Computed example of a mutant assay.
Amino acid sequence: MPHSENIEQPQSLSLVNQRPSLSASTAAEWLARDWGFQMDVRALESERDQNWMASVDGEPRLVLKVANAGEDPAVLELQQVMLARARAAGLPCPEVVHTRSCGSTASWDGNLGWVITALPGRKLADEPLPSTDLWNHLGTVLGRLAIVLAEVEHPAAHRWLQWDVVNAEEVLATYRSSIVGARRGEIADAVLAQFRDLVVPVIDDLPRSLIHNDANDHNILVQGDRVSGLIDFGDALHTVTVNELAIACSYAMLGRAEPREVAQAITRGYEAQRELSQLEREVLPVLIRTRLAMSVSISAYQQTLEPDNPYLRISEQPAWDLLERLMEETADGHD
């Protein structure tokens, strides 16, 4: 796939081996020194950075986010701009908490960190029986976010990222050798072939804008039939707009009895805010499968770097199961 001339590819496709490794005591001390909060902290799951939930009497209040050593500080600024714009539009996103010196970030022994408010609710991944109303509201939130972010321009948004769908060919090909099992390899190859045949020829015709780019079921908080939080903007970038919807659908469909009905409900909510073009509707199913294939391929590679990190396997088996089902249904003429 061609890349924009102003995007420089990193030497490695993964920043996992540059993740910060602060202790809980250090995180608590940092929070007290620069933000003035005395709180208990516990580590949260993370792929590239390090996150700490800060609580008072067991009640979550704040999240200390420690950036990956390889992360461009401008990307942190991008995330904070996005959060501010989303909150101003009434969307359920965290608020940036400034330091005692009114800064948006602080440093500790070479690490760069920032703090946001903790939001209510539990992860969508922990919701046993999400309702159709919840799926619809998720789509509504993402559709509204698409409208808000379409007006945001930031130089850090134009970057190379392995989670960007426009890099799917390169990512899937690079990590193909990390996939274990003949059947899984066949599925990954078939998804890549579909992406090349159906998306690559039209990808330059698809609308592009700044998107969250990681609305998975661990980055969405819910309360009842409502989305109460959209968190972790660390993968945000300027790319194919409809892929925001594809990402959300791909993870929401995991483990569901009727995954296509889930995707349809989310899409209805999204289109109530931002109507899709005919081309976007045509490529959406392929983008959903492509995201799933990228997820399991990247996970397979990252497990070779960190075999003991459970977060890297969190959606692996359900994703393979869903991919196989979707590919079989596609072969039968259902898409």
Rank of each mutant, 00 (worst) to 15 (best):
G224V: 08
Q162N: 07
E261L: 15
A156V: 09
D34T: 05
P120R: 10
P130L: 05
A265P: 09
L83D: 01
V240Q: 03
L323D: 05
A168Q: 01
D321G: 06
I298C: 09
E47W: 02
P10F: 00
A252D: 09
P2G: 03
E5T: 08
L237W: 03
R260W: 11
P310L: 01
T330G: 11
M82I: 13
D197A: 11
N243G: 02
S55D: 10
G90Q: 09
N219E: 14
R42T: 14
V16W: 00
I147D: 15
E324C: 08
K65T: 10
G36S: 07
H334W: 11
L292C: 02
H98Y: 01
A157Y: 03
R176T: 11
V180T: 12
T105W: 01
L15Q: 06
S4V: 02
E258A: 13
N219C: 14
R33V: 12
R268P: 02
V191F: 03
I231P: 02
W52C: 10
D72S: 13
L138A: 08
L112K: 06
L312N: 02
T117D: 08
V165N: 00
L76W: 00
L210E: 13
S101C: 05
L124H: 06
V222E: 12
H98I: 06
L142P: 08
E127F: 04
A118D: 08
A106T: 15
R313T: 15
E280N: 10
Q264E: 15
V96H: 02
L76F: 04
A89T: 03
S104Y: 00
L322H: 06
A106K: 07
V141S: 07
V97T: 08
L112N: 06
R281C: 07
P10G: 05
F195M: 13
D133L: 11
T290I: 05
T304D: 09
L138T: 03
F37I: 13
G224H: 07
A173W: 00
I220W: 02
L198A: 12
L323C: 12
S55M: 13
D133H: 08
F195Y: 15
L13Q: 06
L134H: 04
A27H: 05
N51G: 07
S104E: 15
N216I: 06
G185C: 06
V202N: 12
A150I: 00
A319K: 04
L134F: 01
I187S: 08
P307V: 05
L245T: 01
G185P: 03
D321Q: 14
G90N: 08
E261D: 15
V56N: 12
G333W: 08
Q50P: 06
P207M: 09
A188W: 00
V222S: 14
L322A: 10
R260D: 15
R176D: 15
S104C: 08
Q162R: 10
Y175A: 04
E29H: 09
T140I: 09
